[in-house]
Design a binder for these strands. Structure first.
Lengths: 333, 333
DNA sequence: CTGAAAGCGCTTACAG
DNA sequence: CTGAAAGCGCTTACAG
């Protein structure tokens, strides 16, 4: 029993395929009685609509792709949840790619999307992504919305947060608590996001007339153990440090760990602030003060934009920025 | 400039579309010179292969769906990473759905897959999924592989771990350390997986002649705070307890938290074992002894099976089980 | 309100 | 080794 097609349905109730198609898609004027007959035949034959064939015919698509650098990172998985939830509401389907910071894998995935007839893609571009690549894709009429990581100023839709402001909030919080020796731990040097956050950090320091010490800044990859390692070195060399900002919560966890290992108390001897406000941050001991950026909202907003572009929205490119918030808990005393 | 098609390429170099198709798919015998001419035209026109059209024509598909109950759970995101990595290697694309334990959303997603012409689905079925639903889908010739959560004995392919054995390992470890009052915290009562784990726990107890106390068993949802709450109650009522097994690591973190809050020491006063061995477990203080089940491997294996079914593999259904391992760290002294 | 017919971009026997 | 032609399952003007 091969799958039933529109033609089978048509034959079954003595109408044309055009008619069946119209009742299925709610187009044109169909008499109530015909419509019912068709719908009944659909049930009887167990007919399932072939969306792929329809897409081919009218050259549209309800398929959207998502490129993430690391699905395993809680921030991104939250974002995916937000995006996928929205797409589901809109009866759209999501292709997922986990590019793991590889420019090649990312571009291969885009090729697959293109050939699979997807309608657009939301990307958290790998760090080394170059602008030309994205421009080429977009110039072929394939909508892109950048999420989380901006590239190129006004040439793409973007949704994310304001990293600069996030670190201003964190830094200000610490300064107000009286800290003067504030370190910054984490992030990779090539990261644009990191440079924005550093900008927020440094500008706040200057604003308050606190001398800026380059040696208080350390990069490391996104893991607890790296965060802990770098912190041990840092505290060893610069015992005057009384506060540390983690580039991500996960790094901040490592920072806290290192502080405890040195026999000091987080929040008393040394204050710690994170970034991302992942679920776990509310549960550590002490609970981590962090900068909250609503990953789920970013995902949803990205979904809204990509879908509207796929429907032909020709407005100028826009940036949707969710301002970060400072969530005060116990890690700063 | 509309997208180039196979016909444009054919015209451009004066051959038939059949020829172009054959060089594109490496079928049939094509002379080297023709092949080159075609390939050149492809470059020149910026032609991109329309896989969707091809799928429609030969009624195949390289699209696979994945249903997870919670993409935000680290165990599942690891699994997704494993699956997506494998599918990528095989030039297959992944549709992702985050069903959030909703049977309706799950079934809606399957409908979308069907109508989008996907070739199969790997499912971590929502807890209340009923067998009939899955059977109906499968009987329509749509391959399903169940991952992580088994349903129905021999009617589906399955890949996962041996939960019974996992808890036997955990329980035995504690018994060998001399514990006699061992509690079991977490999981939801409707969960099949939980009942398997409970089986492992109880059987090990009996094997060693340790009386089994129903009151030492508590259910709770998968969060730190729930784990902590239940643990406080438990320890309050049954101070004789010296060891607690967490249904998942995340619950075990809550357990450890509650123990500390009571002024006791994890690993000295009370031993704790988790399940899942998520990344974080190596980093808690003390590091959590846990049962490791290779989520990534499960994802990959699920990918292998679904793809082979999609290619027509008609072997009897099989179960691939990765035996869990005990990873000893410091939470049991 | 409904049907006949062409066509979306590809593939696949069948000839030659 | 290559071409002509039918067809995958749908949609869309165009008639009537």
């Amino acid at each position: 029993m091969a799958k039933a097609t529109i033609a089978d349905v048509a034959k079954h109730c003595g109408v044309s395929t055009a008619t069946v198609s119209m009742v299925l898609t709610n187009k044109g004027r169909i008499s109530a009685t015909t419509r019912e007959r068709v719908l009944e035949a659909v049930k009887e034959l167990g007919y399932v609509y072939n969306q792929a064939a329809a897409n081919l015919r009218h050259k549209r698509s309800n398929l959207v792709g998502l490129v993430t650098p690391d699905i395993t990172n809680p921030f991104f998985s939250e974002m995916i949840a937000g995006l996928s939830h929205y797409l589901e509401e809109q009866d759209s389907l999501l292709f997922l790619a986990n590019a793991e910071e590889s420019v090649e894998r990312q571009s291969k995935f885009i090729d697959s999307l293109l050939s699979q007839n997807a309608g657009g893609v939301v990307m958290c571009p790998a760090m080394e992504t170059n602008l030309d690549f994205l421009e080429t894709v977009q110039s072929r009429g394939f909508p892109i919305v950048l999420a989380v990581r901006p590239i190129g100023e006004d040439q793409f839709d973007f949704v994310g947060t304001n990293n600069f402001m996030g670190l201003q909030l964190a830094t200000e919080h610490l300064i107000k608590k009286g800290h003067k020796h504030i370190a910054f731990v984490g992030g990779l040097e090539i990261s644009k996001t990191r440079s924005h956050r550093l900008g927020g950090y440094m500008s706040k320091l200057m604003e308050h007339g606190i001398p800026f010490n380059e040696r208080y800044i350390r990069s490391c990859s996104a893991s607890r153990s790296e965060g802990a390692k770098v912190t041990r070195e840092l505290l060893d060399q610069y015992p005057e440090i009384t506060a540390i900002i983690g580039y991500q919560d996960i790094v901040a966890f490592g920072v806290m760990r290192a502080i405890k290992d040195l026999g000091k108390t987080v929040g008393k001897d040394i204050a710690v602030v994170g970034f991302d406000d992942v679920a776990e941050s509310a549960d550590t001991n002490p609970a981590l003060t962090s900068i909250s950026v609503s990953a789920r909202e970013i995902g949803r907003a990205a979904g809204e934009i990509i879908l509207s572009r796929m429907e032909g929205d020709k407005q100028p490119y826009k940036s949707v920025v969710f301002p970060p918030k400072l969530v005060v808990r116990n890690s700063c005393g």
